[in-house]
Amino acid sequence: MTDQTPLNQQDKEQLQFLLDCYGAYEHHWPEENRAWMLQLMEVSTEAQQLREHASELDNLLDLTPSEPDTNHLMDAILATSPVPINKEFSIWNFWPYESIWRPLSALTTAGAFGLMLGTSSPNWIYNQDNIELQEAYVAFSEVSFSSDFLEGEIN
């Protein structure tokens, strides 16, 4: 239901100023004034005429494209975008294996083998040394040193 009575001067000035600023599109109007402006539009033909007048400029502004073609810039801009974290420089870039588990399991096996060898080999060496000493002792005990023992010159 529109009202043919003119707007009061204060409302008219305020509405005219807002339409001068933001134009006729409702979504451009300030949030705090939108409800009031819409209410004026509903009840006043004068307000509707002011809006219609403002919409002429909006329509002309809409004719002007505001977004140029920029496809040729895409690649250059994306080339400067952040690199994925796993592609950044780090010590892992030099790691030749896919996963750490393969070399780790090989290292563990080698370590276990080394420990086993280390704990068992002293017995072998000890036993080997004892056998050699016993053989030497037996050999000495069977030889006579009375006549041909070379003592060397004393002086």
Partner: peptide, 27 residues
């Protein structure tokens, strides 16, 4: 996602904002 280098996120962001941005700077 952009900070983590997600190429798709970066492309979407550029696609969405590049033209309006150039338009403003051109104006």
């Amino acid at each position: 996602q952009v900070a983590q280098g997600d190429a798709v996120a970066c492309r979407l962001l550029v696609q969405r904002h590049l033209s309006p941005l150039v338009g403003l700077a051109l104006r």
